[in-house]
Nucleic acid binder design. Structure first.
Length: 492
RNA sequence: GGCGCGGUACCCAAGUGGUAAGGGAGAGGUCUGCAAAACCUUUAUGCGCCGGUUCGAUCCCGGCCCGCGCCUCCA
């Protein structure tokens, strides 16, 4: 099975297969670590996670490189405001970023590449460009890429810049450039700013050069796939292509994937709109990490996702449905044998599921295949026609689902606990939802004890007491269900 | 202005030239001490509007309306 993925470069679905026949070599633009990640950032990283997990599901090994931009204008500005060296400043947010990825169950790429650790490679690349006549140095020591040196410029974003006159619609830069569209490769040192002494002068890298240098360092001059948010298509990726292909004379990435931005309540998320949320904001409101994950991956990556709290609640309930089904499978006692109807339905669900994902990562359709199976299986269980071997088949379906979606296995307690710890450390207790605090007040052991007491009360037909305990638990966010095979409970 | 995307039931959201997946929510029912869960029934003769092509269009073409994104180192 091969994944057919939309390729921005060709404008069509192309088969995504490793050029070397072994591992798929991919580069993903990572975060600029100057603040906590927001849900928009994570939608992109989650969709890339879906991609790599699906590749693994169909047996394609992946070598995935992600950069960390740990030096740029915003970082320099914010670190100065915080009175910290940029290394200390970025380390804090880089750590937070990885904690957040872990909470969202995003797999960590095989290779993490920090810009500040690859300065020599960037310098070499700039020197190469200079030798090719595509880079020039300005009076105060900055370096620019000469756009005129790359006639194919615009091929990714389908922009025709030939008609754009210098100076029109382009910010006035503090540095003099030959042409307004020429972009910075290297920025001359300014007093008080972090800089590196190098053969091309003292300064710091421009933004685009780090990705070219690091992608080539770990993946070679040509590689399979480059991904990022849609905003990066232009100018970032366009510039990467220009400088990389000019330097090597070879195609850079063969395949480009861009994840669309999400909207919040129908508008672009922004701090000034008041609809800006970090992952931590949501965890402190009491939403589970798994629900956030599901909400952010259920709409296919090429479609705008409108993020709402209602959607988050929907996702929470959808996960409950899957988890209840899973519990039902594992806890239930089934007779020996198998039911052909279940076996067939399971096979079909798995096929439909994989086909949907293979078709440009259609997560919505893939999800539907799984949920459709869940209902079929539940119906058969209700009729008492579900057998031991059917359980294996059903669990295999859920396993495939979780190999990519990863929301059924409940590992939500840890991210929530960490978020609460973080809130306490950073003085944000006021942001913690009261219901979340209440639900934290009962340990698993305390819940078990109360459930034991309730079971006893029920046996004595003391339903008043039993209901009282149930209400007490409900207040603390614990929901119980009396099933045939025992009491199930979960935290809301 | 240039480039691009989208408008499908109460909400979210797939999809196909042949008659509308899935999730959530609501209502009724089965089951249950009661709940919950699960299941069943139910909620678009209809897929923004108007034309056209076609035996037939939500899906193709044209126009219009509305929303959104990029064109500013914001994922």
């Amino acid at each position: 099975m091969t994944l057919r993925l939309f390729n921005t470069l060709t404008g069509q679905l192309d088969a995504l297969v490793p050029a070397d026949g072994k591992a798929l070599r991919m580069y993903a633009c990572g975060p600029t670590v100057y603040d906590y990640g927001h849900i928009g950032n994570f939608r992109t990283f989650l969709q890339i996670d879906i991609l790599r997990r699906f590749l693994h599901l169909i047996g394609t090994p992946v070598f995935h490189v992600m950069n960390i931009t740990d030096v740029d204008d915003k970082i320099i500005r914010n670190a100065a405001q915080a009175g910290l060296p940029i290394g200390e400043y970025t380390a804090r947010y880089e750590q937070a970023f990885f904690e957040d990825l872990k909470a969202l169950r995003v797999e960590i790429p095989e290779q993490i590449a920090r810009a500040t650790e690859h300065i020599p490679r960037m310098v070499e690349l700039i020197q190469k460009l200079e030798a090719a006549g595509a880079a020039y140095r300005t009076g105060e020591g900055s370096w620019y890429f000469r756009l005129a040196a790359f006639p194919e410029y615009g091929k990714l974003s389908k922009k025709d810049l030939s008609g754009i006159e210098d100076g029109a619609r382009v910010d006035v830069d503090e540095y003099e450039k030959d042409s307004a569209r020429d972009f910075a490769l290297w920025k001359a040192a300014k007093p008080g700013e972090t800089s590196w002494e190098t053969p091309i002068g003292r300064g710091r890298p421009g933004w685009h050069i780090e990705c070219s240098a690091m992608a080539m360092e770990y993946l070679g001059e040509s590689f399979d796939l480059h991904c990022g948010g849609e905003d990066l298509m232009f100018p970032h990726h366009e510039n990467e292509i220009a400088q990389s292909e000019t330097a090597t004379g070879k195609p850079f990435a063969r395949h480009w994937m861009h994840v669309r931005f999400l909207l919040v309540d129908g508008r672009k998320m922004s701090k000034s709109e008041g609809n800006f949320f970090t992952l931590r904001d949501l965890l402190l409101k009491g939403y589970k990490a798994s629900a956030i994950r599901l909400a952010l991956i259920s709409v296919p990556y090429r479609h705008q996702l409108n993020f709402t709290f209602e959607g988050l609640a929907d996702a929470t309930n959808a996960i409950d449905r899957l988890r209840t089904f899973h519990q039902r499978l594992t806890a239930g006692a089934f007779a020996m044998g198998s039911n052909q109807a279940v076996q067939d339905a399971a096979k079909k669900a798995q096929t439909d599921y994989r086909d949907a994902l293979a078709n440009d990562l259609n997560t919505a359709e893939a999800r539907a295949a799984i949920f459709g199976f869940v209902r079929e299986a539940n119906t058969i269980i209700d009729r008492g026609l579900f057998h031991i071997s059917d359980r294996d088949a059903a669990l295999a379906v859920l396993k495939d689902f979780d190999a990519v979606f990863d929301v059924i296995e409940d590992r939500d307690a840890e991210p929530t606990r960490r978020a609460l710890e973080w809130a306490a450390q950073s003085g944000r207790q006021a942001e913690v939802a009261p219901a979340l605090l209440a639900s934290q007040s009962l340990t698993d052991e305390a819940v078990a004890a109360l459930i034991g007491e309730r079971t006893l009360a029920k046996q004595q037909r003391n339903f008043a007491r039993a209901d009282q305990i149930r209400a007490e638990l409900a207040e603390k966010g614990v929901v119980i269900e009396d099933a045939k095979d025992g009491v199930r409970w979960k935290r809301k």
